[in-house]
């Protein structure tokens, strides 16, 4: 359990980090290291250069724009979990962060690192897909922005440019009235989830649902959104939620592994998605009478 030897650089600016990335085709960015270092130790990853971005000050900021909360690549999960701005404007992410690893890994792990790593069971990636976050990479002098719903293409596989450095992830702010739900099933606390689901309903000032977003994770090669737009035409009663989720989840490809069958994962994910939607609805209003 010892990594192969590699060189190590500690750039102070994003430009310097990008120059280092361009200089070595086998370089990797090191942020919190909570996914990368185990891969190094198991020698699944054998970079010749690690670029530690922890000393780039700009990357540790959380910034509010008119429409988004932009989380810098080095913002640690524990910091994000306690950030007032995130609790207020991205409550779904706050809920999900309770399920991410455990306190010692959250103290080091970052929001951006989890997204760049693209583990199929990652809660942060699921929230990014569910809310349609904007993921920004710097390549040389240019910023490239990716929509999270098109960013993940396989297990640990994304469309990120190989010579790019993730600089920030922008999550859309919720509307004033909004409900959220996040659930997962894992063999034990802090372990990889077997199935997970996230939901957010934005309401207008009259209490009508404006947008409904639901995503499921851990069941396929990457997190995916369910198409539940049909629910906008209903009063969000339990029957419509269950029927809509049941139909939508048939579109999702699920995978088997040692821990659970594809069928089991799909069934659990559908249940969790229903529960997440109900919680999101009930946070704002009482369940309508049947």
């Amino acid at each position: 359990m010892k990594p192969v030897n590699f060189d190590y650089e500690r750039p102070r600016t994003i430009d310097e980090a990008c120059e280092l990335l361009a200089s070595n085709s086998n370089a990797r960015i090191l942020a919190g290291g909570q996914s990368l270092i185990p891969m190094l130790s198991m020698r699944l990853s054998r970079p010749s250069l690690l670029i530690d971005i922890a000393h780039i000050k700009d990357l540790s900021e959380i910034v509010a724009t008119d429409t988004h909360i932009e989380i810098g690549a080095m913002v640690r999960q524990a910091v994000a979990k306690n950030a007032k701005m995130i609790q207020e404007y991205i409550p779904l992410l706050s809920k999900a962060l309770h399920h991410v690893g455990h306190p010692p890994t959250r103290a080091r792990g970052t929001i951006g690192g989890s997204i760049a790593h693209a583990d199929p069971s990652a809660e942060i990636a699921l929230v990014a897909v569910t809310l349609g976050a904007e993921i920004t990479y710097r390549v040389g002098d240019d910023d490239h922005m990716f929509d999270a719903t098109e960013f993940f293409i396989g297990p640990m596989l994304t469309v990120a440019p190989p010579d790019g450095c993730l600089v920030k992830v922008g999550f859309p702010k919720t509307s004033k009235i909004c409900g959220t739900g996040f659930y997962e099933v894992a063999p034990r606390r802090s372990d990889y989830a077997l199935a997970s689901a996230a939901a957010q309903i934005n309401f207008d000032s009259k209490g009508a649902a404006k947008t409904i977003r639901v995503g499921v994770g851990s069941i396929g090669d990457f997190p995916e959104r369910l198409d539940v737009d049909h629910l906008l035409n209903t009063d969000l009663n339990d029957e419509s939620i269950i029927a809509t989720v049941k139909t939508a989840i048939t579109e999702i490809e699920t995978v088997d592994d040692l821990h659970a069958s594809a069928e089991y994962r799909k069934r659990v994910a559908a249940h969790l998605a229903v529960k997440a939607l109900q919680t999101a609805r009930d946070e704002v209003r009482e369940a309508p009478a049947k």
Partner: peptide
Amino acid sequence: CEHGVCGACTVLVEGNAIRSCLVL
């Protein structure tokens, strides 16, 4: 385990409990 699963190597860094096998 030396790859971040067991927690036996936990220490405090700047007051935070972290796993020392997952930090260089």
